[in-house]
Design a protein around this nucleic acid. Structure first.
Lengths: 210, 210
DNA sequence: TTTAAATTAAAACGCATGTTTAAAATGTGC
DNA sequence: GCACATTTTAAACATGCGTTTTAATTTAAA
């Protein structure tokens, strides 16, 4: 008794898996529709274009993550003391909530975000900026609470270094985990990468300016 | 009296500029040969394939940077004390030497490196790993001198976070500099991004493990 | 100057992409 | 059960890509 899944959802599920593994540009509609076992034309019928499909895939996660992250940041800002580490820890719970979207939601989303950011010139920059813009502003403000000694422009740059390390670690994650397992005999899960990442990021943001 | 430039060099120059701005996959041979004002087929005639052209573009910089970086790292390892910051400062002189290859050599090279790394699945991963492998080992070893309290696998991950932040900062650099200039009225040069980056990286590597 | 090699040039090839079309099939409300 | 809207299907379309081919041209050696 297989449960009926709509063509639209079949496409979204197949697309997000392929996008997370190979990136947006590297994934063709033919691969997606083959995996989803639907007709090629149904993507354009249901979503209009590949661009719109990409945004729909991202939206499923953003609509869960963004309100949760904003909630955490607002809550943190009410504390008398705010540390850089506490700011980054704000991401933990919202990312974990993505598990409700999908089992490996946190990993998938971060991979997608990585590819979205890597696609510098593309339409995704504007799209993600439109959705991330206000949260980024709040992030900057909260980080400034934690590091009042850093100028806004200093914090701007460090926040983007943080983003860079994060999305890059995630995109390179599978290959790196493979290398690490081979070289150090220590296989870590994808989810644990962020545990290694957060202390690094906090240390970088807190570093003294030169 | 215009100086004669060989077709091969015209292609290399046009290709590296387009690659650094748009990435490897996003740049077509037709764009390159149009900019270089040479025939489309000359790329395959002189280089054999687009892959080989990409490698030739990278090689011009790698052949200058790698020996210089190795020299610096060897020299540093002879010191009685090695700090993380000192390790990253080892990159400054070798990167600056790329100015002899081209005026904006350091910036161009880091952009190329960013795209090379972003191209996870591609042939460039193997190519760059082949050329970077031993230097990466030396980097790991030198960083371990600076941070004996970190385990090799910890250092492995942090080094890749470093790489991620670096290449991402460079690829996103132009867009970010634009935003920074608009939001903070402060336009910084591409070369200065690395001055902001190095303290961040050193702080991240030196951070306490959780 | 002649002859052979190296280079440039224009055109086409084969392939993959996103998209559109038009007909067939399915579902839905009366 | 009919009529209409929705969805699925197969095929073709238009475009851009890296590459190859073949001939013309330039260069260099004899």
């Amino acid at each position: 008794m297989a449960k009926r899944v709509s063509t639209k959802d079949k496409i979204l599920n197949a697309a997000e898996a392929l996008f997370a593994e190979h990136g947006f540009e590297q994934t063709s509609l033919r691969q997606i529709t083959a995996d989803a076992e639907v007709n090629l034309a149904s993507v354009n019928y249901h979503f209009g274009s590949k661009k719109a499909l990409i945004q729909a895939v991202m939206a499923r996660y953003l609509e869960v993550l963004m309100p949760a992250l904003e909630r955490e940041l607002i809550q943190l800002a009410e504390q008398p003391q705010v540390s850089t580490r506490a700011v980054f820890d704000c991401f933990r719970a919202p990312l974990n909530e993505l598990r409700e979207v999908r089992k490996h939601g946190p990993t998938i989303f971060l991979s997608l975000l990585g590819y979205a950011y890597a696609d510098i010139q593309g339409h995704l920059r504007r799209y993600t900026m439109d959705h991330f813009g206000d949260v980024m502003q709040r992030l900057l403000a909260t980080l400034h609470l934690a590091n009042p000694q850093l100028s806004p422009v200093d914090m701007f740059w460090r926040l983007h270094f943080v983003l860079g390390a994060t999305v890059f670690a995630q995109v390179s994650g599978p290959a790196l985990r493979e290398i690490a397992a081979a070289d150090f005999g220590e296989a870590i899960e994808a989810d644990q990468v962020i545990d290694r990442l957060i202390p690094f990021l906090a240390g970088g943001v807190d570093a003294l300016t030169e």
